[in-house]
Design a protein around this nucleic acid. Structure first.
Length: 583
RNA sequence: UGGGGCGUCGACAAGUGGCAAGUCACGAGGUUUUGGUCCUCGCAUUCGGAGGUUCGAAUCCUUCCGCCCCAGCCA
């Protein structure tokens, strides 16, 4: 940050104030600046009102989280309000199931709309009245052209369109026809109501856009009351206006709809919110379009909208992500107008940052290998003290049982260790976390397959708790679980759903061909420390030295199931990878 | 070759005429009973290119180049 010395009028102290998330700082963004300036100039009498207007035709994804954080976040920051409004203007695509899911997800993310829950369909009557007003003013007309003809008459990007032969009907005829459209006297698609603007306008959106179409479909809220439904461009500004929205924040592709947004509000001379556009979120290794997400669900490529590999909020929730991590991510990526693709690593960083501080630690062996400690009494059990979270003293301590036979991770032993491998190997001593130093004596293999079935070790009784009286300290500390006390669990290892940074980078844009075949690996017979018996669905843990895991919804006391939320950063994996690349 | 936007480090992103913030990633060290965390250091003589204005330009002007969006009775 620049020095602000000797600049009494500098506002830069406000530029970086702590955000709602501890540890993150909000940087300037152009929308925040606009609002700040408007307040300063006294343009905003009263509070700001924003809105998050999802169409209930799919589940919310991380891209929506950005929009939610911007809209609800700005409202919170400036002591305004943010409305949750369902933009339910197309009954053929929308379902109640989605409404409930959307509400749940917004709440989960940590935002409240209070009494400000609205539906576009709640404004249908008012919109209808305003349409009549436009017709009376000679600014809207009923068109009998077919959809194909309308397209034809619209012209192209480089050629002007031509006017419909129905464009100059009398106000009376338009009024009559429009009322009869509403009454259901005409079949679907036979007529539309159009704004009368300019068929030669360089902006295609201004070439007499359709305001209403006839649809004989049951609406999830209004039933069969309506036979005509408003189009987005006509409806959206009206919805914002009715709710006294001050800032209508939307994504970039609506930029050239803004003249139309403004035009309707001007013609009607009603409250006129300001539309501001920002770039939507793109993430590496992720598809974000509703169509593609729906395709993944319907095609059975994932287990559902809440599959932990999905970028949906319900997917992230099930995966073990915290709302705090997602909010912190949304603050860090900023708000701007340029198209961008955010590195997935940033999201993972936000997750780890949050979970590192909060998740209880536990020891879990995912791929067990048995160790017999030869010099440890076979009937002895010791309870050793372990720290629950080194980042949080208040998390306390627990006692972990230790005995003659334990499991360690297969990856923590190598018969012929390469140069920088510090873990267990024949003749080498390592520390068992919170327990003892052990040295490997013997490797026992299956005579037929040659696979290692068991390791024979001896322990040093002088090193209880992990400290040696002579001060020596092994290079590696590994985790373990006592065999007789271990509980079994299934662990689901999730990775990226797509194997390419840009899933759409495929011949014919077939993103499905970039599906990562190894995005899910299911491990059974994993050995967990007994303390994990009490874990309930949704609980998150750090399995030490492995990663963050949470109990899946499918889990039960009879069958524990954990999902891997994210791995820990892994220095050794990097070294091993580099060595492999060298070869 | 119509209209609307956008080009600042590998990825995000501040910067609004006074001499290129921050974060992630990456690299090098240190601490460590998690190869985790944490700490330190490094990482754009240059802002899509070329001209110009100016004492001074990422910021202003000209011009060129590149990328995104728009021809649903979807939102």
């Amino acid at each position: 940050m620049k020095s602000t010395n000797n600049k009494p009028d500098s506002g830069s102290n406000d530029e970086k104030k702590p955000a709602s998330e501890s540890g993150t700082v909000s940087t300037a963004n152009f929308i925040r600046e606009i609002i700040k300036n408007e307040i300063q100039d006294g343009k905003l009498n009263g509070k700001i009102i924003t809105r998050f207007p999802p169409e209930p035709n799919g589940y919310l994804h991380i891209g929506h989280a950005k929009a939610i954080c911007i809209n609800f976040g700005l409202a919170r920051e400036f002591q305004g309000e943010c409305h949750l409004r369902f933009d339910d203007t197309n009954p053929s695509k929308e379902e109640t199931e989605y409404i409930e899911a959307i509400k749940r997800d917004v709440k989960w993310l940590g935002f409240e709309w209070g009494e400000h829950l609205y539906y576009a369909s709640g404004y249908f009557e008012q919109m209808y009245l305003w349409a009549i007003e436009l017709i009376k003013a000679g600014k809207a007309y009923v068109d009998d052209l077919t959809a194909e003809k309308i397209r034809e008459y619209r012209g192209t990007l480089t050629e002007a369109g031509k006017e419909s032969p129905y464009r100059n009907r009398s106000v009376e005829e338009n009024l009559d026809l429009f009322k009869r459209m509403r009454n259901g006297e005409f079949p679907d698609g036979s007529r539309v109501l159009r704004a009368k603007i300019d068929m030669a306008h360089p902006n295609m959106n201004m070439r007499d856009p359709v305001m209403y179409r006839i649809m004989n479909a049951a609406h999830h809220r209004t039933g069969t009351e309506w036979k005509i439904y408003p189009m987005y461009d006509w409806a959206h500004g009206l919805e914002d206006s009715i709710e006294n929205v001050t800032h209508s924040l939307c994504s970039l592709e609506f930029e050239d709809h803004r003249p139309l947004y403004d035009w309707f509000l001007e013609q009607l001379n009603i409250h006129h919110p300001r539309q501001i556009e920002f770039a939507r979120l793109n993430l590496t290794y992720t598809v974000m379009s509703k169509r593609k997400l729906l395709q993944l669900v319907k095609g059975g490529y994932v287990s559902g909208w809440d599959d932990p590999r999905m970028p949906t909020l319900s997917g992230f929730r099930r995966r073990g992500y915290t709302p705090e991590a997602i909010r912190s991510f949304c603050e860090r990526i900023g708000v701007a107008k340029r198209d961008s693709i955010v590195d997935y690593a940033l999201l993972e960083h936000c997750l780890r940052e949050d979970l590192n501080k909060r998740a209880l630690r536990a020891m879990a062996v995912l791929n067990p290998i048995k160790i017999v400690i030869e010099n440890y009494p076979s009937d002895k059990v010791e309870y050793l003290e372990a720290v629950n979270n080194p980042e949080d003293e208040t998390a306390g301590k627990r006692m972990v049982p230790f005995s003659k036979i334990i499991y360690i991770e297969q990856a923590d032993f190598m018969e012929e260790p390469p140069k920088k491998f510090f873990r267990l190997a024949p003749g080498r001593e390592v520390r068992l976390r919170y327990a003892y130093f052990i040295t490997c004596n013997e490797v026992i293999k299956d005579p037929d397959t040659g696979n290692i079935v068991e390791l024979r070790c001896i322990y040093d009784p002088q090193t209880r708790g992990g400290w040696a009286p002579d001060g020596r300290s092994p290079k590696a500390t590994i985790h373990w679980v006592s065999a007789q006390h271990a509980i079994d669990a299934e662990v689901r290892l999730y990775g990226q759903l797509f194997s390419k940074e840009d899933p759409d980078d495929a011949p014919d844009g077939d993103f499905l061909s970039n599906l990562n075949q190894k995005s899910l690996e299911i491990l059974s017979g994993c050995k967990l420390e007994p303390d994990l018996k009490k874990a309930m669905p949704g609980n998150r843990y750090q399995f030490e030295r492995i990663g963050y895991f949470c109990v899946d919804n499918d889990s039960s006391p009879q069958k524990l199931i954990f999902n891997r939320t994210a791995t820990l950063r892994d220095e050794w994996a990097k070294i091993a990878k580099k060595a492999k690349e060298k070869r």
